[in-house]
């Protein structure tokens, strides 16, 4: 592995290796010295063209726990706002000696462009590109599912997961469907027809429009945020109607099997896709997802940067 661009690029064994590595690295979080010397002298650039708090901070904490140097580059207030292209930004970072670039970009495929180009030789990690993919989020969700439902080891075979909400605009949903499929889980996406992408029938998952028929037979439900910033085109008549039909309130929560957990990639809109009382249930694992995100990102950074650069065959 040189880059992490898409959850689809991960084989079953690679995905399990990342989760196993994350499980070992999670122990570092419990120590008084939360630091490892492994990536000393390596430079990691957080190249964020879109706003993000938790993903950027999570990557920053992960890199610092491994002793890498972290440079934060936000497009706002940088040369990008003066009209610099992705290529020139990449060449600049390359000249400064970056070993890895963690990129979030509004355009789907920007990380792929960066990785496939000859602009830079560093590892590229996709931290969310447009409505395409967000592979480390899928990995941390898989890690969380594995901890709660699969005994913390192996893969997720036999588990059933529902993903509810704005599938159309969600990079988290796409990455999760692909990764959970690789790990052996079966996925059902639940959304109003207007919020399902074209070609959803080619995704490795089943589709439902009725959340209440799906909830009683899943081991976990993942609620997605209704992305108000991408909702200009009236995908549903009103926010209240969406909330009534697809929101997870306490009555629907009680339809879940007693072992099932609730995930949310954050940030949550309480009262919209998830009600406040469900968000505060102890089977809702959002806070743990954030903690697991650091471990999983440490694992990704270690596996991409920890060894000798792989020679291309």
């Amino acid at each position: 592995m040189q880059h992490l661009l898409s959850a689809a690029d991960l084989s079953h064994d690679e995905a399990v290796l990342i989760l196993d590595t994350a499980a070992q690295l999670a122990e570092v979080t419990d120590r008084s010295v939360k630091k490892l010397p492994t990536l000393r002298g390596r430079t990691v650039v957080n190249l964020f063209f879109e706003d993000s708090t938790r993903t950027r901070i999570s990557f920053e904490v992960a890199a610092k726990r491994l002793s890498a140097d972290v440079i934060n580059f936000a497009a706002k207030g940088s040369s990008v706002s003066k009209g610099e292209s992705l290529k020139d930004t990449a060449l600049t970072l390359e000249a400064m000696g970056a070993d890895a670039v963690i990129i979030r970009h509004g355009a789907s495929g920007a990380p792929h462009r960066l990785a496939a180009s000859s602009w830079t030789g560093c590892s590229v990690i996709n931290a969310g590109d447009g409505t395409h993919e967000h592979p480390t989020q899928a990995l941390l969700d898989a890690y969380t599912l594995r901890r709660h439902l699969a005994g913390g080891s192996g893969d997720l075979s036999g588990l059933s997961v529902a993903i509810v909400g704005d599938i159309l605009h969600s990079r988290v949903a796409r990455s999760n469907v692909l990764l959970l499929k690789t790990l052996g889980a079966s996925v059902t996406v639940v959304a109003p027809p207007t919020l399902l992408p074209y070609g959803i029938d080619s995704w490795p998952c089943s589709v439902s429009y009725d959340i209440e028929s799906v909830l009683p037979r899943v081991d976990a439900v993942m609620m997605l945020r209704v992305q108000a910033e991408r909702m200009q085109a009236a995908f549903f008549p009103s926010a209240l109607e969406y909330s009534r039909l697809y929101g997870l309130d306490i009555d629907r929560f009680n339809l879940l099997p007693s072992h099932a957990i609730v995930l949310h990639p954050g940030p949550m809109n309480r009262g919209m896709e998830i009600s406040a009382d469900v968000a505060d249930e102890n089977r809702s694992v959002m806070v743990e997802q954030v903690a697991n995100g650091v471990s999983v990102r440490m694992a990704v950074l270690y596996l991409l940067l920890g060894g000798m650069a792989e020679v291309e065959q």
Binding site: D20, Q24, L25, E27, T38, L304, G306, G307, M308
Partner: peptide, 18 residues
Amino acid sequence: TLYRDDLRLRTVRALEST
């Protein structure tokens, strides 16, 4: 593994449990 001085001389190693 994470403290080795030869990490960069080899392809990346899987971690063992502590």
